[in-house]
Design a protein around this nucleic acid. Structure first.
Length: 251
DNA sequence: CCAGACGTTGTT
DNA sequence: GTCTGG
DNA sequence: CCAGACGTTGTT
DNA sequence: GTCTGG
């Protein structure tokens, strides 16, 4: 799955990489080595720009924007469910009430430098979790398939509209499957445009498991359990660490 | 018809 | 055990 | 995702 | 908003 990731590239790097205009509005001043659900994240959306009077342009434009991680459906009465909507299963995203509309018309890319998974390890004193970091070997940013949604708090009539997002997950494949059974849907560069195309209602062909052959090679490494605490943040979280727990031998 | 859920993960 | 907060 | 709380009354 | 269950 994907419940914690890294995004440390500058806004300029991402607008170059994704051919997008910068609409972050100064809301993303720092990189984040420990992004958790409900925190601000940067996404690339493809929708018409609006002028100062709120008039929408005719053509859609790719925009780098800051939204909140954890999708709140437009009909939610409160935002408490946000913490549980940070992933959407590829297998059901086209049908479920919570995601169907966003999937049909509000898909986005979620740029990342890598992500964390916790590998469960049987140890002498019970089940332990070893944090692992996954990152593309070539150093380019990757793009998770995401969905975004607008929400307005019905209990606060003068509150501004909140934009939230979720990351689509698939069954793990390759080496990733040894770490965890689910992983984010990492879109190959060649798929970015179609995923973002608002005129496409159901890009079902892109909802596939990760195939290393058509994307970047991923490096996997154990990292320190410092990452467990959301308050910890910095490049030291990415450093390779001795596994805390040796895998128990089967015999 | 109205009421209540609407999600994912992990674990068993 | 289960929910909330980050 | 993991960490940390999880309750009430009264008083300040 | 829209679907399912009763």
């Amino acid at each position: 799955m994907c419940g914690r990731y890294v995004s440390v590239r500058s806004d300029d790097d991402l607008t170059d990489e994704f051919d997008a205009v910068d609409a972050t509005d100064g809301l993303w001043p720092e990189g984040d080595f420990n992004i958790a659900p409900t925190k601000p994240v940067r996404v690339v959306v493809n929708r018409p720009l609006r002028d100062a009077e709120g008039n929408a342009a005719k053509e859609a434009t790719r925009q780098l924007r800051v939204v909140s991680w954890g999708l709140i459906p437009s009909w939610s009465r409160d935002r408490k469910t946000q913490g549980r909507m940070f992933n959407a299963r590829a297998e059901s995203v086209a049908r479920t009430n919570a995601f169907r509309k966003a999937y049909a018309s509000r898909r986005c890319l979620v740029p990342a430098d890598g992500w964390y998974e916790w590998r469960r390890v049987d140890a002498a004193d019970g089940v332990r979790k070893q944090p692992m970091y996954m990152t593309p070997a070539d150093g380019h940013p990757i793009a998770f398939a995401g969905l975004y949604e607008f929400w307005h708090d019905p209990a606060a009539t003068d509150a501004p509209t909140v934009t939230t997002c979720t990351i689509v997950t698939v069954d793990s494949s390759g080496d990733l499957a040894d770490i965890h059974d689910r992983m984010p849907l990492v879109l190959a560069r060649a798929s970015w445009e179609r995923w973002l195309d608002p005129s496409v209602a159901d890009p079902a062909d892109l909802l596939r498991t990760w195939d290393e052959a058509d994307g970047e090679h991923l490096e996997l490494r154990p990292v320190s359990p410092l990452v467990n605490k959301v308050d910890n943040n910095g490049p030291e979280l990415l450093a390779e660490a001795e596994p805390e727990v040796e895998e128990q031998r089967l015999f």
